[in-house]
Amino acid sequence: MIAILDCTRQDLPLLKREFVSPVVSIVERSGHQAMILPLATTEVPVNLQGVILTGTALMDDHYLLHGIPEWLMKWTGPVLGICAGMQLIVIAGGGIVIPSEKIGMTEIMVTSDEEIFSGKERFNAWELHQSGVMPTESMKILARSEAGVQAVRCADRPWYGVLFHPEVRNEWIIINFLEICSQHPHNNYDLEIQWRHPNSQKLLKSRL
C-alpha cells in the first residue's frame, strides 16, 4: 500500500484532479494500491510500503500551516515529496523554504547518482512553484537546475524530495521510487523517534 498525502487545500476539490489523481494513477498503473489521505490526517496508516506527498497550486500555501503529520516523522520507510511535499520534507529536516518562482519546463542536472534517477544525468522537467528550498546538511543534494536545488535525499533514511513535478513527463521517477518501496519491508515505524528537529514545527509556524 502506498499512502498519497494530499497537500492541496481541502476546500478546493478541483485541485485533487490536477495534483493528486495523476500521481494516484501512476501508482495504480504500476500495480500498487494507493490510499489517499489529506495532509492534516491524524489517521496512522498501516501496512504501508511508501508515502508520496503531492504538490499543489501556485496560490495554495495551506500545506505550510500543517507541516507533515507526526506519524510520518516516525516512519523510516521510503517517502517521495513532490514540490510542496518536498518543501515540507526539507522543513522537517531543519531546512527552510526561500522565495523562488518558476513556471514551465526546466533542465535538471543530476549531481549525485542514486537509484531514483536510474543513471540519467540530465532531463527536462515541469516546474510550478513560488518557493524553493535551502536544505541543511542532514540532506544530500541529488539534482540542481540553474535556479537552485531540485532534488534531495535525507542522509539517514530513503526520503526523497523533488521540487519539479515528476508526474508531468517524468513518470519514470515515480516508477523508480515505487521500485525502491517494493524493496523495503512494510510498516517501517520507529516509535522511539520523536521530531528529529523539535523546533521545525514551531519555526514553520513563526514563518507564516
Binding site: 478546493l12 478541483l14 485541485l15 484532479r17 490536477e18 489523481s21 495523476p22 494513477s25 497550486a57 501556485l58 496560490m59 518562482e101 513556471i103 514551465g104 519546463m105 510550478l128 508526474e167 508531468v168
Partner: peptide, 23 residues
C-alpha cells in the same frame, strides 16, 4: 498550461486544470 499559469500568477488568480494528465 505554462502561459495561462503565468498570467494567473501575475494577476494573483487561481488556475485550475481539471483535465490535467487525465486518462
Amino acid at each position: 498550461a505554462a502561459r495561462v499559469q503565468r498570467i494567473c500568477n501575475h494577476l494573483h488568480l487561481w488556475s485550475f486544470n481539471p483535465l490535467w494528465l487525465c486518462d
